[in-house]
């Protein structure tokens, strides 16, 4: 028998680890007086810059760039908030009851309340607790992020077969990773995938909240963030 060839799927996880973007910082404007508007302005600016990074990151997901441009757009328009939130969740894992929007922008319950983000804080923390309990690893987190993108249930997909292929490849990568690294828990891949409905629910809430902030018109928002918000509603 020929020696077993190294599965390209384990390669997907290592590839996703390499494709992981550098940290970006919130850098709140030091000249602006502290207020809820300042906090929301900082977060919207951070999200806008993160979106640029997410779009670049998506291109490195094996198979993503071979989708039609329209399908790439549809997946990103559906999943961007889930990807943003998953990143916040992962950064917040080492912390206790605090959300790490960026390493220089960490919000506790009180700060979230003052900013009108208490509901979101509670939902995101529920996700943080789930992943803490699972002791989710970076390999799993990067794979879940890619799965959230591929599985975003956009209603505008042109080539569902190609998107299904991407989902299958990423799903298989997660399963292969779990069966080699977590033999002690044969249901671990399933447990991880079962966190995705709460992620979807939280992202939906977040989009609605930021959309209503946009409608109120008090918080300046950059064009890409606005464009992505509008694509969701």
């Amino acid at each position: 028998l020929p020696p077993p060839t190294k599965k390209p799927l384990t390669k997907i996880v290592s590839h996703l680890l390499v494709a992981e973007p550098e940290k970006i910082y919130a850098m709140p404007d030091p000249t602006m007086p502290e207020s809820d508007i300042k906090a929301l302005t900082t977060l919207c600016d951070l999200a806008d810059r993160e979106l640029v990074v997410i779009i670049g990151w998506a291109k490195h997901i094996p198979g993503f760039s071979t989708l039609s441009l329209g399908d790439q757009m549809s997946l990103l328009q559906s999943a961007w908030m889930e990807i943003l939130i998953l990143s916040i969740v992962f950064r917040s894992l080492p912390y206790e009851d605090e959300l790490v929007y960026a390493e220089d922008y960490i919000m506790d319950e009180e700060h979230s309340r003052l900013t009108g983000l208490l509901d979101l804080y509670v939902s995101i923390l529920q996700l943080v607790r789930k992943y803490k309990k699972l002791k989710v690893e970076k390999e799993e987190f990067v794979t879940l992020k890619a799965i959230a993108l591929a599985n975003s249930d956009s209603m505008h997909i042109e080539d569902m077969e190609a998107v299904q292929k991407l989902q299958d490849a990423l799903h298989e990568a997660l399963q292969d990773y779990e069966s080699s690294q977590h033999q002690e828990d044969p249901r671990r891949a399933g447990k991880l995938l079962m966190t995705l409905p709460l992620l979807r629910q939280t992202a939906t809430k977040a989009v609605q909240h930021f959309y209503s902030i946009k409608v109120q018109g008090k918080v300046p928002m950059h064009k890409l963030f606005l464009e992505m918000l509008e694509a969701k509603v």
Partner: peptide, 20 residues
């Protein structure tokens, strides 16, 4: 597509996705 100009542009920008 016109409505989603920036996303469209950023996706079209040349980065060479690494092939596996």
């Amino acid at each position: 597509k016109e409505k989603h100009k920036i996303l469209h542009q950023l996706l079209q920008n040349s980065t060479s996705p690494v092939d596996l």
